[in-house]
Amino acid sequence: MPKFCSVLAACNALIVFVGLILFSTQVAGDDEYYDTLSSLNLEHTFDSGLNPVYSRRGVISIHSITSNNADIDQEDSHTPQDITKLKALVKSNGMYRVRIMSRPATASSPAQYVQSFTPACGLYESSLSDHIEIHLDASGNLIGMSIDSISPHCTGIQPPSRQMQEFNSTVDLIQTTSGPFPETSTYVQKIEQERQEKMKGGQVDNRSFIAKYWMYIVPLVIIMMFANTADPNQGGGGR
């Protein structure tokens, strides 16, 4: 796209302008690759049971939804005590939970979160490697998330604790697609095209209908003749 623009700045301006008109929340071009559209606070808990206490894990920065570009900053995500808690959670076959605020609290309603979980053992055995999916609707609002550890099945291995320093995460953005719709226009085009081809073909092949399809018609006629001759006999039987 930039090759149509002589001056880079002008191009930027144009793109931003178009972006403003079309989607006020979306980033239009590659030039703004590292601008942050929005950032989401990821919280997690190693507690089990009712009313767990969530703590900050990191920040997910969304750069572009259309090109699935987001990264996660999770320094100081956990303390060594948390790892002890995680081990306890693994032992009790518990779940590790994460959440992100989707709607801040208002006067009438409390803050709303989207939340997900994964078996703690998978996270532990994969040395805190996980994959996070962020689901967004058509206008970019957060609707849900899911978390998966890299190793799906627990084998009971004990990874060295020095690998437990930091989370190793990948983030994917998934936006609502538009639903299927009947392909009427393409179908009409196809029919039109076929009709035109037929017309073209019709000029070449202008034999009569019978001349063209005699091989279908003759058997049909024979069958019908047989059927007709068979019928009067049946009728006679009935009388």
């Binding site: 049971g49 009712l50 709607r103 709303q112 939340q115 979980f117 609707i143 849900g144």
Partner: peptide
């Protein structure tokens, strides 16, 4: 009405079985 879908697992407690929120989706538009 709130557009919230949430999932629970089952936790045995002293007061019987109790549901604990494990996942939530915010489908409110």
């Amino acid at each position: 009405a709130a557009g919230i879908l949430q999932g629970y697992n089952t936790v045995p407690t002293d007061q019987g079985l109790v549901a604990d929120v494990m996942w939530r989706l915010d489908l409110k538009r």
